[in-house]
Design a protein around this nucleic acid. Sequence first.
DNA 1: ATGAAAGCGCTAACAT
DNA 2: ATGTTAGCGCTTTCAT
Lengths: 336, 336
Amino acid sequence: MTTIKDVAKEVGVSVTTVSLVLNHKSVRVSQATRKKIFEVAKKLKYTPNFAARSLVSKESKTIGLIIPDIENAFFSSLFKSIEDYARSLGYMVLLMNNNDSHQTNIEVIDLLLSRHIDGLLLVISNETYLEKYQEEMKHLLLNLPIPLVMVDRVFDESFFNKVYFDNQLGGYLATKHLINHGHKKIACITGPKETKSSEKRLMGYYQAMNEANLTINKDILLEGDYHFDSGKKRMNELLDKDLTAVFAFNDLMAYGAIRSIHEVNKNVPKDYSLVGYDHFLIATMLDSQLDSIEQNSKILGEEACKILFSEIKHKTENLQDICLKPVLFRSGSVNI
Amino acid sequence: MTTIKDVAKEVGVSVTTVSLVLNHKSVRVSQATRKKIFEVAKKLKYTPNFAARSLVSKESKTIGLIIPDIENAFFSSLFKSIEDYARSLGYMVLLMNNNDSHQTNIEVIDLLLSRHIDGLLLVISNETYLEKYQEEMKHLLLNLPIPLVMVDRVFDESFFNKVYFDNQLGGYLATKHLINHGHKKIACITGPKETKSSEKRLMGYYQAMNEANLTINKDILLEGDYHFDSGKKRMNELLDKDLTAVFAFNDLMAYGAIRSIHEVNKNVPKDYSLVGYDHFLIATMLDSQLDSIEQNSKILGEEACKILFSEIKHKTENLQDICLKPVLFRSGSVNI
DNA sequence: ATGAAAGCGCTAACAT
DNA sequence: ATGTTAGCGCTTTCAT
C-alpha cells in the first residue's frame, strides 16, 4: 500500500505539501509541484488511509442507520435514499437491522458507537414503545455523543430531532375516502395497540367518522399485528359482522384480508371496499389492486439526512420536528 | 471521549497493561489489576478508538458488499444473511448499490477500497457482462489488494472465488415441470441475452426439451429485460401464437405475463400454464399463485462469507467455486 | 508482572 | 512557496 510518504519522496517534497495538495487546500503551492503531486499519486495508486485520517480529524465520515428490517420494502427504499444522499457528501452508511427487537436495537447502537460514527439515523423497534423499554431508550439517546435523528417512529418528547409521517392524517384520509364513497359501516384492522403508528391512524379514523357523524362500532375495530396472517384472521372474524368497508392499517394485512374474502368467494370491491396503508409498490405489479395511503420514503430519507448532516457540520443543536404528509393512492379497491 | 490513557492513569498502570487486559491477551497480568482495569473501563465508558486500532492492525474489520439493488427482495435477503454472519465475527458491512450500472460498479469499488475494507463480496451489474466492460472489470478484480468473492453473477474464469446458483439446472427444472404436465409447446420470455443467467436458463430449457424429444420453435423464444413491463409486452406478442405454456425467466416478468393474460380475459393455469424464476416470496401473500424456481439467498450469503472470511483470516488464496442448486416451488400455476 | 517507547499514516500549527 | 514536528489512540517489541 502506498502512503503519503512514498508520494512525497517520489516527488521530492514534504508530506505536508502532498497532504495540502491532495486535500485541495493548496493555495500556497506552485502549479508545477502541484501537478507533479497529482501525477505521482495517480501513478503510485495512492489512496489515503482512512483510519489515519480519522484518527487525526476525529471524523469517520460514516453514519449509522438502524432500521427494523431491510427486507421490508419501505425501509430498503429509505436506505437507498439515505445512501445516495450520504454518498454525495462523502459519507458511508453502516446499516443495521434491529429485527424489531428492543434488545437488538440497544446492541447495535453500541456497536455503531464503537465504530465512532459521526451521526445516527434511527428507526426504533416497535417493541421499544412498550413502557418498560421507552425510558431505557430515551436515556440512552439523550446521552449519545453524536447527532441523532429519529426517523419514522419517533418519541413524543421535544428533545429529539425527528422526521416522520402524519399517521393521524393518513388514518383520516383512508377513512374519509371510504366515507366519500358512501360507506357508513367501516371496520378497522389496526396494528398492535401500543405502537404509535396504529394509535395515530386510529385517531384519524375517529376524526373522520365523527366529522361525518357516523357511529363507531367497537365490535368491528380489531387489533392485528401488521402481518399477513393477522389480516386474514381478523377479516375472517369480520365476515359475519355488519359492515361494507375495511381500513387495514397496512397493506400486508389488507392482502391477508383479501385472501380471506376470496376464500368465501366474495370480492373486492364488490362485496367489501378496502383501503390499506403503505402503498406497497410491488403489489401494483402483481395484478392486484388496493387503494392505499402512500408515504414517500425518499423524502423521508432526505429530510432526515438534511438535519443530520447539518448538525454534523455545524455542531449546533437546533432541534427539528418535521412532519410529512402522506397521500391517498387510488387503484380500484373502493366502491359504493 | 475517554481513551486508553485515561483508564491507565485512573488505575495507575501503563497503557500497555490496559491494552493487554482489554484485548484478553492478559496472561501475564495479576487478577487484581486486571479486575480493576475492567471496572474502571466500564466506569469511564471506555470504547476503543477504531481508527487508532485499524491504523496499527491494518484491519478495518469491515467488509464491502456491492449489489445491484437493495430494493430487490433477493438482494435484501442476501444482505441480511451476510450482515448476520459478518456481525457474528465482529465485522461490519458497507453496502453499496451499483444500480446495475457498470460505471457505478467501478466507482463504488474504488470508494470501498479507499475505506480499506478487509474483503469484498461482489454482485456485478448485468451490464458488466457486455464484452467491452468485462475486460475492464476482470483486470480491476485481479489487481484487488484484498480477498474477493464473486456472488450470484460470476465470470467463467477460474481465477476468482465464486458462489452462485446453477442456472442451467433451474431452467431445466422449470421446463421439465411443464413437460411433466403434458405441455409440448412451451414459450420462453428470457432475460437480456448477454446475461449469463439468461443464457444458462435457456440452456436448461433446451436440455429439457431435447431430452423429451420436443421440437423447439424459436418464434416463441422471446427476449425480455427482467422487468414487469417486458413480461407483459412479450406475453402480448405470444397470445396469438400456438402454445400452451410459458417459462418466464423471472417472477417479475411472469407477473407481467399474467397481467397480459388477464387483460384478454384468459386465465392461469386454465388457458396458459406458467413458471417463473426467483420465488419472490411476497407474491405468495398477495393471493397470487406462481410456480417458480427458488434460490436460497441465505445459503448463498453464508457460503460467500465462509470463503471470504477464511481468506481474510488465513491470508491464503485457495480459489473456490461453489455451485448451489435451485429448487422448484409449486403453487398452482401449471396445469395439463 | 509491568512499563517505556516506537511507530502505524495522516493533519496542522508553527517555522523558515 | 515549502519543510519540521508534534501528536491523534492504539498495539507491540523489548526492557526491567
